[in-house]
């Protein structure tokens, strides 16, 4: 369509000439040439009137748009030329708006990171109560009353039979009581220990624990799973080791250390082991048929290693100067 071309050409020459029009006289001449009563735009509208009715709606719309565009461009140019123009006052060196800067707490960030690593290998996430009975926190986990292993976790009691959970393992018991194998879960949340508050221990901390139960999951698979986790979390080159340890709810048990090349020493990051058959029978699983592994880690500890934080209390002080760094 020739009219299409004309519109395009008009747009181009309009912009070109407008940019050359510096003085107010130039601009006035320009206005008359293009936007005046007998200007180029008016001519276009005349041509438009001659169009067949069928084509009118389409060009009508386009011409209106064109008219608005050209008028706006001309007005802008006029404004720029004027000494009273608002834009000439803009100081582009001024700071931008200081938008409020929020954050996700570092412990939450680490928890999410751990969650997504395990989710990527098929783990579901489970939650459970922070106050629980002695049975779910201890006895079902193969820690009878008056067992020396109770000393491993100093406990806050709500009443002689209810405790602030000392680990999220209680969630594993609830899970197994309500679900048959196979299981592949992590549990996360707050746990409490009746320890003196200092730079390295607090009365509570956050934990992520995992549980895998089926007919075949072995020690070798546990090692493979946790190696995958450590490499995802701390980097592919992370040196790690499994060393024998003791937890009442797993056997054989291990602790996992990673090598800290800055401090030149091993650092303990998690505990794990094959689920003790007594735990499986306590929840009514056939412990001849099913086996599996469990593991657990403290989020604060991992965050401290990862971010180089030296005082655990910082996590619970909520000093903006600390939080803003995440």
């Amino acid at each position: 369509m020739s009219l299409d071309k004309t519109i395009k050409g008009l747009k181009a020459s309009f912009s070109k000439e407008l940019s050359k029009s510096k003085t107010s006289q130039d601009l006035e001449n320009f206005r008359i040439k293009y936007l005046g009563r007998n200007g180029q735009l008016a001519l276009l509208f005349e041509e438009f009137n001659k169009l067949p009715t069928l084509e009118k709606p389409r060009f009508g719309k386009e011409l209106n748009i064109l008219k608005n565009q050209l008028t706006d461009q001309y007005q802008n140019a006029l404004g720029n030329n004027s000494e009273n123009s608002a834009t000439s006052d803009v100081d582009f060196s001024l700071p931008g708006y200081d938008l409020p800067d929020g954050n996700i707490h570092p412990l939450e960030q680490i928890t999410s990171e751990i969650k997504s690593i395990f989710q990527s290998i098929g783990f579901s996430v489970a939650y459970g109560p922070e106050i629980d009975d002695d049975y779910h926190n201890f006895e079902a986990l193969n820690v009878p009353k008056y067992h020396p292993a109770r000393d491993m976790q100093d406990t806050f009691f709500i009443n002689p039979n209810a405790v602030l959970r000392t680990h999220t393992s209680n969630v594993q018991i609830h899970l197994m009581e309500n679900q048959d194998p196979p299981l592949r879960h992590i549990c996360c949340g707050r746990v409490f220990r009746n320890e003196a508050v200092s730079y390295k221990s607090f009365c509570l901390f956050n934990q992520v624990e995992g549980l895998v139960i089926n007919e075949t999951s072995s020690f070798a698979e546990m090692k493979g799973t946790l190696e995958y986790f450590v490499q995802e979390m701390f980097g592919k080159d992370t040196k790690m080791r499994f060393r024998p340890s003791y937890f009442p709810f797993t056997e054989p048990s291990a602790e996992v250390d990673i090598w800290n090349s800055k401090l030149n020493q091993w650092m303990e990051i998690l505990g794990c082991g094959m689920v003790n058959p007594n735990v499986l029978s306590n929840v009514g699983y056939d412990n001849e048929k099913y086996q599996g592994f469990a593991f657990g880690m403290g989020i604060e500890r991992i965050a401290m290693i990862k971010y180089g934080i030296k005082d655990i209390r910082l996590f619970y002080q909520n000093d903006k100067r600390f939080l803003e760094q995440f």
Binding site: R184, K223, T225, R243, P244
Partner: peptide
């Protein structure tokens, strides 16, 4: 423990359930 070689069977991976949180 070092002499038990780690193995990780990806074929045993299950689909994880939605995290309620």
């Amino acid at each position: 423990y070092d002499n038990i070689k780690s193995s990780f069977n990806y074929s045993s991976i299950m689909q994880y359930a939605n995290d309620e949180e």
